[in-house]
Amino acid sequence: MPFEIYTSLPHSRTPSQTIQALSKFTTQYSTATSFVPNGVCTQEEKRVFVEQLLRGLSSNLEERRNAGTGGSGDSSGSEEEEATRLTLESLRILCRESLSCSQVYSSSGISLLLSHSTLPLTPSPSPSSSSPTQATFKPDSQVTIESLKVLSNCLLQNPQSRRCFEELGGVEGVVGGLGLDPTKLNLTTQFLLLRLLFLTTVDNKHTVAKLVEALGVVDVIEKIIKKHTPKPIEPGPFTPQTVLSEALKLVFNLMHDKAPSSKIGGGLFGGAVTYTDADEEVVEGVKPFS
Rank of each mutant, 00 (worst) to 15 (best):
S245H: 12
A32Y: 08
Q17F: 10
N204S: 10
P235V: 04
E51T: 14
A278K: 02
H256G: 01
E146P: 03
T26S: 14
S75F: 01
G77F: 03
Y6K: 04
A272M: 07
K205I: 08
S108T: 15
K258Q: 09
A259S: 09
A83L: 03
E172G: 13
S128Q: 14
T276S: 10
E146T: 02
G179K: 03
G266V: 14
E80T: 09
L215D: 03
L22K: 06
L91Y: 02
E44L: 15
S98C: 06
G77Y: 01
L168S: 11
D140W: 06
A32R: 12
E280S: 14
T69K: 08
L178P: 01
L119Q: 10
T31N: 12
V212T: 14
S161C: 15
T136I: 06
S141R: 14
S23F: 08
V243T: 09
F289Q: 01
K258F: 10
T183E: 08
G109Q: 05
F269S: 07
L250Y: 06
T133A: 13
L112H: 04
K258R: 11
T33N: 15
P230R: 13
H228W: 14
F191K: 09
D257L: 00
S58H: 14
L196Y: 05
V212Y: 02
V171D: 00
G169H: 04
V150W: 00
P123F: 11
T229R: 10
E63S: 13
E89M: 12
S23L: 10
L148G: 05
D257G: 15
S90L: 06
S141E: 06
K205Y: 01
K287V: 11
S58L: 07
S128T: 15
V273E: 12
P288Q: 09
Q160H: 09
S245Q: 14
R47L: 10
G56P: 00
S16T: 11
K263V: 04
N253W: 01
L244A: 02
L148E: 07
G68W: 14
A259C: 00
E79R: 13
L121H: 07
R163L: 12
T136H: 11
G68H: 13
N153K: 11
M1A: 12
S23R: 12
